[in-house]
Design a protein around this nucleic acid. Structure first.
Lengths: 209, 209
DNA sequence: GAGAATATACCCGATAATGGGTATACCGAC
DNA sequence: GTCGGTATACCCATTATCGGGTATATTCTC
């Protein structure tokens, strides 16, 4: 019997998956959740063999939840089920320990295929996903290191709030020129140039995956 | 026989809805589509009684598609099926002619209830939706008028791309001072003040519904 | 120890965005 | 015709953001 738990903030999708698996021989849904934290409780209590995991969810996202599950239940198979097809989304779920990755714009029966594949110890990825992303070396080469230092990241967050360098200097107890030097360093590292580019970058980054 | 067409860019959701309706007496799915434009072809060819309509879709969004359907087939019932719970999303679908609005984080069987309700000439809205939004007077009062003029809106779009006033002036064949005057007018109308606020506003507005 | 990165702080100059105004011309509503 | 809004164009001053540098001190890795 393959026990399955599902985490997905859209209840309509959970219901769809449930309908799909309801009559499947050998598969049993032992719990569903609309957020990552609730899911952990379910996994700890019921210890499903397979978890279908959305990424963007309230309270705890699928990436973090997967890491935690892998630490406590290393034999549980996590299959990502997400609208995100960006490389970084795939890589992060892979690194967290997911054994599969399905896109929401694929047919629902992909989930069934993925469940059977991971139960056979295989890795299952959607045809819309670059298959090389599940290769260790390729994924590692693709993972951007954070080019910004801790201070730089903090300053960038303040810039995203349109704080002036003077205001940021007050907040951080440094000279204005120090903040401006950090700004210059970030411009160089991020390959930006021109007025407003750093502010634009900081604001837009908020909405990136 | 209630004929139903579905437009939704996530195929997994279409499959879930199909599973739900498959065994329903008196309901028949006559077509599905992953984008608004393809859906129009289906509606023109098959003339379903009910359309389940996502909002954010490629090629043609659900709001526009609904308007077009209402113009050509005024007796067709459109039910919105969306992740957006913002008032403006609901109001715009309502204004486009939708007779129902279901949220994706509701149980899938809400769709069944909505189909039967609209076929009885009723309006069906998700319990997560402010029920007053389907009242004409309330919706009208809630619809913000655009405070910006046509030129102002165009300039704001260019500002969102971090174009300088000088660049915008070149694009629009005006003097730089004209662009700056427009900027001042927008600052006043939007109640903004200080450097970078207009750029910040322009960029953030892009991601609003 | 050497080298690189980070953090702190300063110098200078150019320019773009505000914030405060001025004005005229045109259009639409009343 | 009057009024208000929009569009066009200009004046001025201030200041924040770059872009180009300078320097020292500290920390980490090899």
């Amino acid at each position: 019997m393959i026990t399955v738990a599902i985490a997905e903030d859209h209840q309509s999708l959970i219901d769809g998956i449930s309908l799909l698996l309801k009559y499947e021989e050998g598969i049993s849904i032992i719990g569903t959740s609309n957020d990552g934290r609730d899911l952990l409780d379910i996994v700890r209590l019921k210890q499903p063999k397979v978890v279908i995991m959305d990424i963007r969810m309230p309270k705890l996202d699928g990436i973090e939840a997967t890491k935690i599950i892998m630490k406590e239940f290393p034999h549980t198979k996590v299959i990502a089920f997400s609208m995100f097809d960006q490389d970084q989304a795939v890589i992060q779920m892979r690194d967290a320990g997911a054994k599969g990755y399905i896109l929401k714009n694929s047919p629902l029966e992909e989930i069934l295929k993925a469940i059977h594949a991971v139960m056979q110890g295989k890795v299952y990825y959607d045809t819309g996903i670059d298959q090389r992303l599940f290769d260790d070396a390729f994924a590692k080469a693709k993972t951007p290191k954070s080019v910004l230092s801790k201070s730089e990241r903090e300053i960038l967050r303040l810039i995203a709030q349109n704080k002036t360098s003077s205001e940021i200097a007050d907040i951080r107890f440094t000279a204005v020129s120090t903040v401006e030097k950090h700004r210059k360093n970030m411009m160089r590292k991020l390959g930006l140039s021109g007025k407003g580019e750093l502010l634009k970058y900081a604001i837009e980054k908020k909405y990136d995956f």
